[in-house]
Design a protein around this nucleic acid. Sequence first.
RNA 1: GGGCGUAUAGCUCAGUUGGCUAGAGCGCACCCCUGAUAAGGGUGAGGUCCUGUGUUCGAAUCACAGUACGCCCA
Length: 926
Amino acid sequence: MKSETKPYKETLNLPVTRFEMKANLTEREPRMQERWREQDLYKQLRAARAGQSRKVLHDGPPYANGEIHMGTLLNKVLKDMVARSLSMFGHDSPYVPGWDCHGLPIEHKVVKDLGARAAHTSHADIRSLCRVEAMKWVDVQRSQFMRLGVLGDWFNPYLTLDPRYEAGIIDVLAQLVAEGYVERQLKPIHWCLSDRTALAEAELEYQESTTPSIFVNMLVKRGLPESLGVDGAVHAMIWTTTPWTLPANVAIAAHPDIEYAAVRYTPAGGGEPVQTILAVDLAAKVLARAGATDIVELGRCRGRALEHAVYSHPFLEREGRFVLANYVSVEDGTGLVHTAPGHGSEDFQTGMAYQLPVLSPVDESGRFTAEAPEWIQGQQVFAANKPIVEHIRASGHLVLEAPLSHSYPHCWRCKKPVIFRATEQWFIRVDHNRLRERTLEAIAQVRWIPEWGRTRIESMVSLRPDWCISRQRAWGVPIPALKCTGCGEQVLTAETLRHFRDLFRKEGSDSWFNRPAAEIVPDGLACPRCGKTEFEKEGDILDVWFESGASHRGVLASEFNLGYPAFMYLEGSDQHRGWFQSSILTAVGSTGRAPFETVLTHGFVVDDQGRKMSKSLGNYIAAEQATAKYGADVLRLYVSSMDYSDDVGMSERGVKEASESYRKIRNTFRYLLGNLEDYRDFDPATVDPLTLRAIDLYMLGKLNELVRDVRAAYERFEFYKVYQRIYQFCSVDLSSFYLDVLKDRLYAEARTGEKRRAAQFVLARLHDALARMLAPIIPHTAEEVWDYNKPGGGASVHLELFPEADPRFDDAARNQRWAQLLELRDKILVELEALRKSKQIGSAQEAKVTIHSDRLAATDLAGLLTEICIVSEVEIQAGHAGAEPRIAAERSAHAKCERCWNHRADVGQSAEHPTLCGRCVGVLVG
RNA sequence: GGGCGUAUAGCUCAGUUGGCUAGAGCGCACCCCUGAUAAGGGUGAGGUCCUGUGUUCGAAUCACAGUACGCCCA
């Protein structure tokens, strides 16, 4: 041991605490989470809030596939901050997490893994493999969410594959069926001819493929505008790369704003002149390719003028109509689009809008049925292209034929080209019973945060088509429709659905697939059309959006006893089209109101340049790794720091900056705790707040302002304001001002003296308030900090309420005075800096400040200024009347007190302690 | 191509009904301290308020037209 060079250091009250500066969150957080699990914090919180006003944030179920990413992290952390802050406002806010377990991606994965074996695997086996796959990811994601510190009923979540939940889905469907919303309609879907199966978008592979491309004239019968200037027979020229769809043609689509021309030309090889209509911009090109001569333009019109004109089909006894569609372009073709609602997605949309018939004379194997013209019946569609083209050529309708290479969808399994084929599907009729209008009315009743969410979902709902809720897949909840073996009637009634609802609740929806129809058909069921009592099961399942959209039944209104409607739904802004819409449509249809009072949306996670985050761009941050590296509280603090109403930019550098901020907050707590170590046994009630020093009262007033601002920000879910406000308070008001000023009092004054106790009184309040206010954002650290100084021995900060402002410390006039004082302080600090630059002083304690001011001369502010500038002496002298204070700083002429380091005139007056100032001598002698 | 949204210092955010040389914190640079020490303090430098046009005595703020980015459609 070296000899003691500073014996008086031992007499100071320097900070002492076991609260470590190094956060080491990676190890500390899991331990904290373990503790919360053991004490069952979630259950304790439920008990503590039992009977209070209930505000439920209803979790939108993430898809149980893959690890969580930054987007899921953002969403879950925001939800957690909402739920926790609601609890800290005193509400009873249970949080039941959920998972979306059915659906194509999981089925896809399972089938892919099976490879060739998939063909020999039973439906039931595929479903049980899917279940295993889904549950695997539920477990993975659960532990990842828990690692983030999200507080919820993690071991009693809702799963869309849970029989109780499935029953809820069918219950909603039953109600919708009872009120007539559900009906069967034809709709074109992707279809693989060789596998004889429906395909989803995700099961398509686009490949270059060569098909015919033909230009066809169709004879217009009536309804053309005069401006076209035509006389006699006139045609409309369409273009298609799928001649086999022509038998299903029922309309020609034009763009309302594109300009069309009527032209007369002599066909290649001579013959009678022909009149036809096509887009102005394409006419010259197309006619040149066709080898036409003597081309004369006769007149023009806008597409909208063609609407409702009538033409006759090129080879069927049928009339078709001109319709308008916005997807029509002049990229290629003729600007007039052959429209067959049974064979195309856009065609179908247009067909719905104009109530056109949906024709699809093609069977499961892609062969034309008896509804097609005799000369192609039984032929496979692709093979039928040739006779169809020849037929049109022979009748003189063909203008031009040329092979075309373009991207065409193929089956992901057999690699063969697919077709669009109309099949019967189940739909929810959006305009039945005014469902659309009533949904819009319900939307008006909801609070949307941000406000523009309302406009967004309104425009989507007012434009959306009927909702196709059936899918031809294996992994989902069946639509338990029964097909009469006698007449083929589909039986799907409220009664049969309630029967199957009860069956599913008992046995799960597997029972539909695994048990024979005869076993599960309701007793005594007879076909309403033919009276027969034998049925087959249909194989369709429900759209997964219907499943998750029905969570208001399965989760809010029943099993989990959360209450209907929910206080809030909180998801990314993509859910205006997704879950918010499927939820509100099913809810309005079945209960007449929205399932939520408030909908809060957040933006997407992008990189620091505002670009989408993707692995291929190299700007991707893996959520798991980031959590492992920086800790949950750092990421949570990062999330809290940004305004989520827009996209949030995240980057590795951003995370690092967040950990800097975290360290500042942590250190602020460390200082507070270090100076409160001996305060725990002290009874704060013995401090009369009115005896506190001016600066203490001022800080308590500042704390009041902080508490009010933070509460207001939490009320509006503006976490970035909470962060900003608290962080700047810690940094500016505390670290660089109050806590710095306090050092002399805390370290040098008598340990249990009134002056030090007064400071500790404020520190304790700061600690208490900051820990509570930060608890929703950095729950682990808030709890750790709470542990070190438990007022009242609370088991967890997360069972506490937010602090409230204490009006005893409000004083507007005082704040005004302090604002002036701090302004003066800033000016003094500039002078001190100049002194430092010229090497006359190092620390401020070596300085003496002289202020010349007429105004201040009459006051007794010298002492206060000495304190808040942490200098050794301030002298105020008279200055010119009305002039700004003039400030001079110099090195103090007094000796330095060896104990408190202030330069004081009274150093050396004690024989016993010749190097100490009077105050320090007093403290030591007692 | 359409609907909705965003754009202020390197970063995160302020900027009320158009009005002082556009603010804060962080970061950065330089300095100090060594009794919050893998801490703490001070000073300072950073902005074509996305671009353009217009309205106005005056525009980050209002209008129009663009650009970029995001979400959802097509």
